[in-house]
Design a binder for these strands. Structure first.
Lengths: 174, 174
DNA sequence: CGGCGCTTGTAGCAAGTGCTACAATAATGT
DNA sequence: ACATTATTGTAGCACTTGCTACAAGCGCCG
């Protein structure tokens, strides 16, 4: 097994751990344990902790893109339909971990973490573009923006146990 | 100065520090320094760290309520107007720290922190009720929910440097 | 005055943090 | 076979984390 393959394998397990336990529970030793290696080795493969985290988050983002491909409708959908679909998808147990991590990234970014700030925006823009491509609309930019604001709002509220409010808010639209 | 007064004074300075630097930078020693005392004393006044954080967050919530009183319109406003107003208010430098902390609370709650979960929901419900009272609507529950989802969505997006998307999304409504 | 309880400082502990120096092993090319 | 390089383990450093044991100071009531 080449060094690159090892790296890729480790990266995969690191992503699993971050998705399962969050960034705050992702210090080097727990990460190393989850990847079946040592903290020493993590810093051998990834120059830095922040570099490591950056790569892991990008890996996670790539995974999410793939998962979303599966949720992609064959044709663009009108705003209301797409919103209902995505809102349901994001609360799916399969997707929820991504949203938890995304929320944590946003929080870290708001507190001044440069790495998280940069990656958070990249992921966010990617998601926005993807949504725009799914939208059947005369004003795709505006509707994609509204879609995204609404969806992230539901992520936020569900995080604090206010999923019922999300349902109330979106119930009028379906 | 009585013991209660001292406690209240400390609490106030702790709130300042959390608002300025976030929960992640709020371990006992920095907090103590900000309050002009020692970690030892913090654990004398507040049984636990989590109890301390709980009280600080409630204090912060209470402050925000007061600040919002100042932003309260004399009469209820229609949805679009209220949304525009609150959206502008939340990105105001005076309010933004509250939102940063709120976001951090949500993130912590999503990661299973019981204290943050409980307090986050309490604050969220309070905010929802306050919004409902400001709303002039035939369907106040639904509109308040939509208002809240949208506003928290903008908080999220602004955190990752996508304030432009918020503007695009809300621009259509004003 | 004397004792008693509230308040506070000093010092430290055990665990965890990112990271590194050093050396031993394994692989690789000449 | 040998020298060089890549890979990995061991051990540790300097620091932060929440929290605590101990004792000294303090005021207050008898």
């Amino acid at each position: 097994m080449t060094s690159d393959e090892k790296r890729a394998l480790i990266l995969d397990k690191l992503a699993d751990h971050v998705l399962a336990h969050g960034l705050s529970a992702s210090s080097l030793r727990p990460l190393a344990k989850a990847a079946g290696t040592s903290d020493r080795m993590l810093l051998y493969y990834f120059t830095d902790k922040s570099a490591l985290i950056a790569e892991v988050l990008q890996h996670i983002a790539a995974r999410m893109v793939i998962a979303m491909e599966g949720a992609t409708a064959p044709q663009p959908l009108p705003y209301d339909v797409l919103l209902a679909r995505l809102s349901a998808a994001l609360s799916d147990p399969g997707f929820a971990p991504y949203m938890r991590v995304f929320l944590e990234v946003a929080s870290g970014a708001a507190n001044g973490d440069a790495t998280l700030s940069q990656i958070g925006e990249a992921i966010g823009r990617g998601f926005l573009d993807w949504g725009k491509a799914q939208l059947q609309s005369d004003t795709p930019d505006i509707d994609a923006a509204r879609l995204m604001v609404t969806l992230e709002g539901t992520v936020f509220l569900r995080a604090i146990g206010m999923g019922d409010v999300c349902r109330t808010a979106l119930g009028t639209i379906e």
